[in-house]
Design a binder for these strands. Sequence first.
DNA 1: AAGTGGTCTAGACCACGGA
DNA 2: CCGTGGTCTAGACCACTTC
Lengths: 235, 235
Amino acid sequence: MRSYKDIHNILLERITRGEWPPGVLVPAEADLAAEFGCTRVTVNRAMQALADAGLLERRRKAGTRVVQRRSRDAVLNIPIVRHEIAEREGHYRYLLISREIAPPPQKVRAELGVTGSTTALHVISLHFADGKPYQLEDRWISLSAVPNAGTESFELVSPNEWLLQEVPYTRAEHVFYASQATADETQQLALEPGEPVFVIERTTWLSDDPVTHVRLIHPANSFRLVTRDQPPGAL
Amino acid sequence: MRSYKDIHNILLERITRGEWPPGVLVPAEADLAAEFGCTRVTVNRAMQALADAGLLERRRKAGTRVVQRRSRDAVLNIPIVRHEIAEREGHYRYLLISREIAPPPQKVRAELGVTGSTTALHVISLHFADGKPYQLEDRWISLSAVPNAGTESFELVSPNEWLLQEVPYTRAEHVFYASQATADETQQLALEPGEPVFVIERTTWLSDDPVTHVRLIHPANSFRLVTRDQPPGAL
DNA sequence: AAGTGGTCTAGACCACGGA
DNA sequence: CCGTGGTCTAGACCACTTC
């Protein structure tokens, strides 16, 4: 028996092997159904999966073509720091540095899409791995989107972890970059002056309502992001 | 009429709104089919999409549960440099620095999974945006996997672009990190001493056969990676 | 044993969009 | 127009896995 997964894998191989090079028109569903001795629906299921993965482009009447790839995708998995460190069997420690309600600076207001004198919750905290500073978390939380955050002290649970567990989100944007540590960061992360840091900035929304904006700052020498190893279009 | 996409979106909303919190057992396919007035197959299609996106966990007999999320995913799009710069309406220039066939150093051998005295093609090149160095590309190409590369000069087309067009791949691994530029890098990227750089390392395979390993080095002050803005589990 | 998801078939109708 | 993909239904059988 040929399942749609079998068919998917056969087609995937034809693409990755170069038997069906980019740009080429592949046979119609009906023809492939005949070839594999199954229904058109089964072939459709397999081809849709490949289209979802970005390997095929399908248009009615025009048929299905192999996509000409102009870029590569990398799927990053950004875990909760505590789990990340625990998985490496390191010793984890969390420290709350400050917590206050204040109007965010201009830059953060732009990210969160809030105006004027709206206040938000500002939490700065530090995550240690084996006694050394691993991540500085500088976060603003919208109190209108997350009123519960106002009564959470964040002394024992980091905002990162608390939010991921408590607050659903519909959209997230990430920016990654390298820079030199500021004076504050140098001190809090116990760095040498001028040392590079790796920064992750994230903003999340709950259906167009901004929830939180955070900067996660890591000493460059102890931090790397690695893609989950997942072949494109695998089932 | 309720299509499987409608049902998908309804269920997605129930999850992201918190109506179905993490860990909870959701109704069986048959029940939902009754609720939406459609066949079980249609509900199945919708729920499978949510399971593929990692929002649901399904097991026969045990039923379907909302996943407790322990991390966030970020989908990065890493374009060909030339397109990236062209899209910003910048001026692009490419320069081949060196091209030689040699045995790779230990580190690269480990990445490529090759042994001893196997030789490979080593190409170093530089990509400019508006006259300023933007990316230093330091690449090793397996000549057994890509014999064609031996006859390509790479004087006009960068290896990055040539490979993406010419050579299919089945798997890719990425590592991202920040560091201080080495002496060579400082000189080639026209940096001040000690300036930070943002490094992308990538290895690709064609069905367990290593194809290429590359280090892409960017001046930190002109480079940031941004996620494609794609809600989790969208159809 | 029984409940749940996984998948197939056969036939049907529709929606899009190229010629 | 009419070929192609998109999707639904009804019924069926199977494959797990928990009870």
